[in-house]
Structure formats: structure tokens, C-alpha cells
Computed example of a mutant assay.
Amino acid sequence: MTASATSPFWHPERHADRRPALLARARIDAATRHWLAERDFLVIDPPALQRSPGNETHLHAFGTSMIGNDGRGQDMYLHTSPEFTMKKLLAAGEKCIASLQHVWRNRERSALHHPEFTMLEFYRADEPYEAVIADSLALIRLAAEITGIENFHFRGRECDPRAETERISVAEAFMAHAGIDLLASMDDNGVPDGEALAAQMQAAGMAVPEDRSWSYLFTQILVDRVEPQLGNGRVTVLDRYPACEAALARRVPGDRRVAERFEIYAAGVELANGFGELTDAAEQRQRFEAEMAEKQRLYGERYPIDEDFLAALAFMPEASGVALGFDRLVMLATGAQRIEAVLWAPVAE
């Protein structure tokens, strides 16, 4: 019997086809852990079960019930990121920590998405977010070095991971690729105006959807006009997101409209998302509540706020952090075109 793309992952012939990429994954994993150890990162093992899976509008969790000795069930969630636990450890006094482990996100399955995937997340206390940007770029180059690939390829796009990196702000990217003055659609405090953004879209000849919330329009422009232009030929760092699109990032000094959030793209694939971390508990609560109100409006559900996390922020030092999609990096470093090709055992559909 000959294996095909529809054969189960355990079929010997299909596994033989997939094995080279999986062995490359193992080598990249080992090299990444060695790289972290050489730079004094302490690799930790956060628990996956959490009272709150995160409080961002478009992140969806897997829920469960934890039954204690008294027989009562407590709602729990598989984390969408180890972020809350890791920041609590920064508050406890750790300075340089990393996690390379599975996380879970519901409502996500595509060539680049899988409900259970591996995330490399790491933090540096008392360091600016330029430090973790540099770390992320070094790890991307390391993966290419391990496999010996010259260029990343994905869906007709190509990127040289060794070329000089492009760095562009979100506002600059919107103007360059969509003709939109993004900062003109919010006030000096960063409060967005959906109608102002919709008017600019109409003037630029774009279709304006019925939902004119600023966040929805922002995402539509980003996905349709901006992201296709990122990471082509060289890696792109998309920097300084609007504060209202950066729930866990501190604002840029001198401009409350934007925050210290960045994303990294290669060959059109988003690889990393990082922040200069917000440590103001009052502002963080306000942002979480706004995110959950929008989640309720769009999806009819909300997640609890982790009060323990907010309390820990009073002890947390200034820090920077980043989450990097490890499976996506392995995809690019091996030339794979679907995430399942680099997973040892994909979740059954």
C-alpha cells in the first residue's frame, strides 16, 4: 500500500516522507535550547492549566473543569500562552527566562495554524524590547543555519534570513502599502475613531464593511494590504503598534497613541510577536476589561481576569518579551508548506 497525503501520519511510508523534516525539527530544538543556555536563559516549565487563558479579543481557549477533593468543579483553561506564569516568575525575581512548550488555541486550523502547537517564549528583565528583537532575529538565522537552507519559501514568497532586516512602524507600513494615515484616526491619547478610519478607506477606494469598529477595520487593512508586503526578500520587523492593538505592551514614551509591540515576518509568515511589557496594573485591568467587552460583543463569551497576575505586576521589573511560533520557524527552515508536516503527531481532525 502506497502512502498519500490522506494517509494517517503513522503510515510507515508517509512517516518516511515526513521524517527528514522531523529530524530537522529535533536539531533546531536542540540548537535553540543550547543557544538559550549559552546566554543564561533559564528554561522553565509553566503549567498548562490556568484560571484565565489570556484576555485578548480574538484568542480562543480550550476549557475544562478541575475537580478537587471536595468534588466541586472549577472552570480551567489550557493556556494560549505561558505569559501570565512567566511574568509572575519575573515578579518573583527571575531575570532571564524561556519556555519551549505546547500551547493551545481554539478556532484555529490552517496551513499555518494548529490547535496545539509549540511556542518559544522568553523574557529579559531590565532590558529594552530591542534586546528580544535581536534575540528573535538571531534564532531565525540559527534555524536556517541548522538546515542549510538558503532562502525561506512560502506560497510563492521568498525571504533571505541572512539579509539585512527591514524595520518599519505600523503607521509607516499603512501609509506605504495602503495609503492610510493610521495615526490620524485616533486622538492624542490613542482612542481610536472607526468612522475616521472608514472615511480614509473609502477615499482610498477600499470596500468598507458593515462593522465599522476601528479594530475590525485595522485588521482588514493589515491583512489585505500590509501583511502581503512584509518579509519579502528579507525579514521584516513591524514595530510600534497602536496601543489599542497591544493589550500587554507599554506605551511608547512621548506618544500615547502607540505601544512597544512588534511582529516579525518572513516570506509573508508571521513568526514572532513581542512587547516592551506593561507593568501598570490599573492600565492592564482597563485593557483586559475592554478586550473582554469586545469579545463578548463579537463571540458572546468572555474569560475571567487573572487577579493574581494583576497583583504580581506591582513586583514585576521593567522587561521585554517575545513569543515565537516554533513550528512555523521549522516550516520555513525545512521548506514545508503546512504545519502538520513538521509536527510529530498532528491532532486528529
Rank of each mutant, 00 (worst) to 15 (best):
I67D: 09
E195C: 02
R257L: 08
E127Q: 13
G194Q: 13
Q101R: 12
R234S: 03
T80L: 07
L112D: 12
H153T: 14
M186L: 10
D188Y: 01
A48M: 12
R155T: 05
W214I: 05
L298R: 08
E127P: 00
A26T: 12
A282E: 14
R240E: 12
I168P: 08
A111F: 03
A61Q: 00
G179M: 13
P304N: 10
A24Q: 07
Y129Q: 12
H153A: 14
E245H: 09
L49I: 02
E307D: 15
S215R: 14
H11F: 12
S99T: 14
V223M: 09
F9T: 07
R14T: 10
P47C: 08
I140M: 11
P20A: 02
E318C: 09
F174G: 08
A138H: 07
I221M: 07
L182S: 11
D45V: 04
L89S: 03
A61L: 01
A203H: 10
M186Y: 05
D255E: 03
F9N: 05
W35D: 08
W35C: 03
E340N: 13
H11A: 11
L222C: 05
L313D: 09
E318D: 09
E301Q: 13
P53H: 06
A144P: 02
A282T: 07
R105A: 10
Y265N: 04
E283M: 10
Q101T: 14
D45P: 13
R287F: 02
H153K: 09
R212G: 06
D40R: 09
E277I: 07
E270D: 14
M66D: 04
R338T: 13
D17E: 15
Q337W: 08
D327R: 13
H114C: 11
W344F: 12
F122S: 04
A311D: 13
N232A: 11
V170Y: 12
V191G: 07
T85A: 06
G205M: 05
E283S: 09
V330Y: 11
G300K: 05
E164P: 15
Q229I: 08
A5D: 04
L278A: 01
L142V: 06
S110H: 07
D75S: 04
F154K: 00
L271C: 15
V223G: 02
A246I: 10
F84C: 00
D187I: 03
R285M: 01
A293K: 05
V226D: 11
E56W: 01
Y303T: 11
H153D: 13
Y216W: 06
P253I: 05
Q286F: 00
H153V: 12
A134K: 03
P8Q: 04
L42H: 14
A311V: 02
L90W: 05
R109G: 03
Y265E: 02
F9A: 15
N151M: 06
R124L: 03
V191H: 12
M76V: 15
R51H: 11
A199D: 07
M66Q: 02
P228D: 04
P346K: 11
K95T: 09
V191P: 02
G148L: 11
A333V: 00
S81D: 02
D126L: 15
G156Q: 10
H34K: 13
A199S: 04
